[in-house]
Amino acid sequence: MKMYPNTKAAKFFPALALLAAAGLLSLLVGKYPLSLAKLLAGDEMQTQVFLTLRLPRSLMAVLGGFALGAAGYVFQTVFCNPLAAPDMIGVSSGASAGAAFAILFLSGSPLAVTASSFLGGLLAVGIALGLASAVRGQYFSGRGTYSAGNGTIVLAGIAVHSLAQTILMILKLTADPERQLASIEYWIMGSLSAITLRQIPFYCAVCVAGLTGIFLLHRQIVLLSVEESEARMLGVPVGKMRLLVLFLATLTVASVISVTGVISFIGLLAPHIARLLTRDNRLPALALSGLMGGFLLTLADILARSAASAELPVSIFTSLLGAPFLLYLILNGKGDRNHDG
């Protein structure tokens, strides 16, 4: 059948190769002078730096970028909105408030901050989705129960987002301006510089679990983009499925940003780039969103750690790299539209 032109695969493999190359490069670049010869010779210090610092950081960049890109795809597809991003229903602000809380009231150690921001992000999304399903939605589902419409979820998300921002503001006000405030600002800016082996296993596992769910449900995610009553008549349990999918997507995002701090744009840019390359919204677009996200974040992190004498916030580079690339694709006329709107 000629209906699936093989160009999907033709774009998938170069993207995979790009990501692999970026991942390898990121293993080679860093402030500590690692050398392959010494590593292979079993130099203790070299091995330690490589295994506990360099490798976890590269891994987190690849996986984190992949997760942010994939989650961005999920949000843009489910909400049928090219500007949708995981932040929309409060995960970033919840995670920021959680991190600020840990900095102020808990020990402030990296492990506590990570755990607290993870819980903060999940709590915010949980409240938003809970509110949305409690609110009387626009449609009845088959058994006379109500389901949360997109609009309700977005509204609840906005409410929770502002609430979390307010809490964050109050926390910042109570913070000591010379120490805690700086810590909070630093966390919010997002960086992979402090990632260590010890911090990440749990969050990587959560992230992989969430991603697995997203990939398994990819057909349902596409169906969720269909107008609600039509989707329901196509046998999609719209309300429950949407909550599940959004929860999985925010779970992956929360697991990433609780370790790295807020990273902007990847969730927004990667799916656009992927759609412009694949020109549709199915599994290849989802996979490519992840690959592009991973590629962007890895490359951005390489620059963040090597462009200046100090570590720079990684978000600067994610947008500096991503935005021109997106612009190039648009101007090149690779795709005319990927969303009706």
Partner: peptide, 18 residues
Amino acid sequence: SDITEDYWADISYEQLLA
């Protein structure tokens, strides 16, 4: 000494070890 910023500069573990 090779930091060029005039404010607290963020570094990585690797940098400190180096």
